[in-house]
Computed example of a mutant assay.
Amino acid sequence: MRRVALKIAYIGSNFHGYQRQPNYRTVEGELLRVFKETNIIEDTWTAHYSVAGRTDKGVHSTGNVISFITDEDIHINQLNGLLPDDIKIIGEARVPYGFKVRFPLTRTYTYIQPISPFEKKTLDITKMHVAMESFIGKHNFRNFSKRNEKNPNRKIIDVNLEVDEDVLIFTIVGESFLWNMVRKMVTSIMEVGYGKLDINDINELLKPKELRQFIRLQPAPANGLILSDMEYKNIKFKDSEYAKNKLVEFLKKEYMLHEQEKKADCRLIKILKK
C-alpha cells in the first residue's frame, strides 16, 4: 500500500464540473471510471481518495491534484490512453501516507478576460491595479462568496494583472478560496476599471458586514477560470511532457473551432448592422 498524488489537467468546457454527479459528464466520473477499469481504485472510501479542488462547471485546470492509496503501479501513459482527450494526468508524486491533498500551501488561479470591443468606456488599468492591492492580506470575503460561509476569512498572497493586447490575464495566489470568490474578485476589479465601482467600495466589501443585497457582484464567466497550480510543502511532481503535449494538440483543434465561431459572429454583427 502506498499513497500517490496525481496532477490533473482538463478543459472544463464540456464537463458539468469536477465532482461526479448522476447522469452528468464530470471530470471525476471519467477519472474514477478509468481507475476502476485498471484496478487502481476499487472503492474511493477504502482508497482514501480525495481531491484538492472541486471546480465548477466550465472551469479548467492545469494544476488540480488528487490523492489515494493503491497497491498498483501507476502508468500515466496507459491511464491517459483510456481517458478522453480533454482530461490528462500530467504529473505524479510519491507522497507520505498522511498527505492531505486538500491543504496545499497555496493555490493559484488564472482568469482570462477579453476586453470587449462593444464597451464604450475605456478601462482604467491604473485604478484596477490599486483595487487589486486591497485584496492582499487576510480579509473577510463574505461578500465575494455565493454562500453564507462559517469562516469567510481568507488570505490572499498576490494579485497580478497582465495586459496582452485585447486580453486581461489575472493571476491570484492565496492559501484557500471560497466558492465563486475568484470570479467575483475579477468582476469587482473590472467594475472599478469601467468606473461602475469605486476603490472604496472594494474596501467596504472586504469588511465583515453583509453587503450582498446592496452591491451585487455577479461571478465572472466560469469559462475564463483556470485552477493553474497547487504548491505543497516538500512535494515535487514529476511532470509528463508527453501528456501535456497531447492536451496541447487537443487545445489547438478547439482553438480553431472557437476562432471560426468568433469570426462568424463578427461577420453576423456587420451584416445585421447594415
Rank of each mutant, 00 (worst) to 15 (best):
7 K>M: 10
7 K>L: 05
10 Y>H: 04
11 I>V: 09
11 I>G: 02
12 G>R: 00
13 S>W: 04
14 N>Q: 14
19 Q>L: 13
23 N>E: 15
25 R>L: 13
26 T>V: 12
40 I>P: 00
41 I>R: 04
45 W>S: 08
51 V>G: 00
57 K>I: 13
58 G>T: 07
68 F>C: 05
70 T>M: 07
71 D>N: 10
72 E>I: 09
74 I>C: 11
75 H>D: 12
76 I>K: 00
78 Q>M: 12
78 Q>K: 15
79 L>Q: 07
81 G>Q: 02
81 G>V: 01
81 G>A: 05
88 K>F: 15
90 I>M: 01
92 E>V: 12
93 A>V: 05
95 V>C: 03
99 F>A: 14
101 V>R: 01
101 V>K: 06
106 T>N: 05
106 T>S: 08
110 T>C: 05
117 P>W: 10
117 P>Q: 08
117 P>G: 11
118 F>K: 12
119 E>I: 11
126 T>P: 00
128 M>C: 09
129 H>M: 01
132 M>K: 00
136 I>W: 04
140 N>C: 15
142 R>S: 10
149 E>I: 03
150 K>F: 13
152 P>R: 00
157 I>H: 15
159 V>L: 10
162 E>S: 00
169 I>G: 01
170 F>R: 07
171 T>R: 03
172 I>F: 07
174 G>V: 01
179 W>F: 12
179 W>Q: 06
180 N>T: 05
181 M>T: 03
184 K>Y: 07
184 K>I: 14
186 V>E: 04
187 T>C: 09
187 T>R: 01
188 S>M: 15
188 S>W: 03
189 I>Q: 01
190 M>R: 03
197 L>A: 12
198 D>I: 04
202 I>M: 03
203 N>S: 13
203 N>R: 10
204 E>V: 04
204 E>I: 09
205 L>N: 00
207 K>C: 04
208 P>A: 15
209 K>T: 07
214 F>N: 13
215 I>R: 06
219 P>I: 05
220 A>G: 02
221 P>G: 12
225 L>N: 06
226 I>F: 06
227 L>G: 03
229 D>F: 13
229 D>A: 14
236 K>D: 14
236 K>S: 15
237 F>V: 12
239 D>Y: 11
239 D>V: 09
243 A>T: 07
244 K>M: 11
246 K>F: 10
247 L>W: 05
254 E>N: 06
255 Y>K: 14
256 M>Y: 13
257 L>C: 14
257 L>F: 11
259 E>F: 11
259 E>G: 08
259 E>T: 09
260 Q>Y: 13
265 D>G: 11
266 C>H: 07
269 I>N: 05
270 K>R: 14
270 K>D: 15
274 K>A: 10
